[in-house]
């Protein structure tokens, strides 16, 4: 099993942020993102304010910015669209460095880029300080629908099993001289994915049988996540409170 022993998005630690109960952090992250989204796009200083706020959390949680930056690259495919907007947007246009850029398009691109980046960074901060398992317990505590929590729990367990299976199949293909460097050689990979799907489906059926055999009736037994203390809520919600103050200031002044 080549899978790492912890999730790639999680950075183990013992900081005050790590120690907060997961449900507090989920609510705090959600509210912070809401504030960011509600901020008018022209309120440029507000976005710097949010970034400062996140930096403060990173310092408290001892997360190196470079570690986050590498993981934030996941955003890149979504930003491509934003780059097109200044070229395709409506008039009036601005001449800059020999390019004709749309004013509205520029603002639109900035809006996507700034809010998207802040959203991704907030989520990454949550993931970096909270193990996956605790996130699920937190969701359960927050009374997320049982079915969603069940599916996420099973996904957490089997994503690694299926990834390991895919890895073994790939190694077995390579061991027989497969070298998919060109598009027309990708057929074997595609068939591999197909058979992986069938195998995963069959495994799903076997898992279901094994669950039935142990008396499964449709809901996971409630896991014992502790209730969060008031002081934890106060600490955790300090972040969205500051974010809300920034958002309100931005709304009033723009």
């Amino acid at each position: 099993m080549g899978a790492g022993h912890s999730h790639p998005l999680y950075l183990p630690g013992t900081s005050v942020v790590h120690r907060l109960p997961a449900q507090v952090k989920i609510v705090a992250a959600f509210l912070t993102v809401l504030c960011v989204v509600a901020t008018p796009r022209e309120a440029f200083p507000a976005f710097a304010g949010y970034l400062l706020l996140l930096v403060a959390v990173w310092v408290a949680a001892r997360i190196p910015p470079g570690w986050l930056a590498r993981r934030a690259l996941i955003e890149a495919p979504f930003v491509v669209l934003a780059v097109l907007l200044p070229f395709t947007g409506p008039d009036p246009r601005i001449e800059w460095a020999g390019l004709s850029l749309s004013h509205a398009g520029l603002l639109g691109a900035w809006n996507i880029l700034a809010k998207g980046t802040l959203g991704v960074l907030t989520s990454l901060t949550l993931a970096a300080t909270t193990p996956m398992r605790d996130l699920l317990l937190g969701l359960q505590r927050l009374r997320a629908p049982a079915l969603v929590v069940t599916i996420a729990t099973l996904m957490l367990r089997y994503a690694d099993v299926i990834a390991a299976e895919a890895r073994r199949m790939r190694v077995a293909r390579i061991a027989r001289g497969h070298d998919p460097r060109f598009l027309w050689q990708a057929g074997a990979t595609a068939r591999g994915i197909g058979s992986l799907f069938v195998r995963s489906y069959e495994r799903g059926e076997r898992v279901h049988l094994a669950m039935l055999a142990r008396g499964w009736t449709g809901t996971l037994p409630a896991a014992g996540a502790a209730a969060a203390a008031r002081v934890d809520w106060a600490r955790g919600l300090a972040v969205p409170v500051v974010a809300a103050a920034v958002a309100v200031t931005a709304l009033v002044t723009t």
């Binding site: 996956m132 099973l154 089997y158 099993v161 495994r203 076997r206 898992v207 049988l209 669950m211 055999a213």
Partner: peptide, 11 residues
């Protein structure tokens, strides 16, 4: 069951 991965499904 024969394959423990079918049986052990919790985190």
């Amino acid at each position: 069951f024969q394959d423990p991965d079918d049986q052990l499904f919790m985190p």
